[in-house]
């Protein structure tokens, strides 16, 4: 989905001096990094480090109070940029209608025509093993099925970048496995993946590189192997040891 030769490519993403304050409290401060067009970036850090917040800012759901978020194609509107991205939340928000209808609704929001939308939605369900549940109300699916449906919905949108906010934190191991497989699928299809997690094993399995956040500051952006073998900051080292860090 990311074609490097495209002149209007979304990536790389440059984040500079990013800060976010809420009710006088600084929640994110001086964050700087660049995301290249390929790879899987895992956001790590203790609770409250600002992982979810950072993804929401990048995705355009929140507006930074300072600093900049620059996508490769400048000058485009937030709505236009967001159409080429997708986000999967910790608890999937599904509409009160059938599984297939949920995916089709998302496609129709992006202006995909009916016939094309139906085909793409059915393909997406098929890919994530949800075809038998296509007519089932989304809200009565199991937690794992719901998260898979949220992934299928994101898949159908063919995003250039996918944000995942702790997508497996409420799931059992089998469902977690299927989410991880899905992340690999996205990766293979060329989608840039940015995902936060608390599960270090999962981080090791999936990460190409790691962004380590602590107390609203970005302490590391390093390739996965380096991060797990030789963390550069004492906080990351402590975090990897399982010490309490904040």
């Amino acid at each position: 989905m990311n074609d490097l030769s495209r002149p209007d490519a979304l990536l790389p993403l440059r984040v500079s001096a990013l800060g976010f304050r809420h009710r006088g409290q600084s929640l994110l401060d001086g964050v700087e990094f660049t995301l290249g067009p390929v790879g899987r970036t895992i956001l790590l850090g203790p609770n409250g480090a600002g992982k979810s917040l950072l993804m929401r800012l990048c995705h355009g759901l929140l507006t930074p109070t300072s600093g900049r978020i620059d996508w490769s194609l400048g000058g485009a509107s937030v709505a236009f940029l967001r159409r080429r991205q997708a986000m999967v939340f910790q608890r999937p928000v599904l509409l009160r209608r059938g599984a297939l209808a949920n995916v089709r609704h998302a496609l129709s929001l992006q202006g995909v025509g009916r016939a094309e939308g139906k085909r793409r939605a059915e393909d997406a369900l098929e890919r994530f093993g949800l075809s038998p549940l296509a007519r089932r109300p989304a809200r009565v699916l199991s937690g794992g099925e719901q998260q898979r449906l949220a992934l299928a919905r994101a898949w159908a949108l063919r995003p250039e970048i996918l944000f995942l906010d702790e997508p497996t934190s409420a799931l059992d191991p089998a469902a977690t496995k299927s989410v991880e497989d899905a992340v690999l699928d996205f990766h293979r299809a060329g989608t840039r993946v940015v995902m936060s997690t608390h599960d270090l094993g999962q981080a090791r399995r999936l990460a190409d590189d790691v962004l380590f956040l602590c107390g609203g500051r970005l302490l590391e952006q390093t390739p996965a192997t380096t991060f797990f073998e030789q963390p550069q900051s004492p906080e990351a080292a402590a975090f990897l040891r399982g010490d309490l860090v904040w």
Binding site: L107, S108, L109, G111, V112, G113, R114, E116, G117
Partner: peptide, 8 residues
């Protein structure tokens, strides 16, 4: 190709 998405 922006067909009316909410036709139903």
């Amino acid at each position: 190709m922006l067909k009316n998405p909410g036709r139903s």
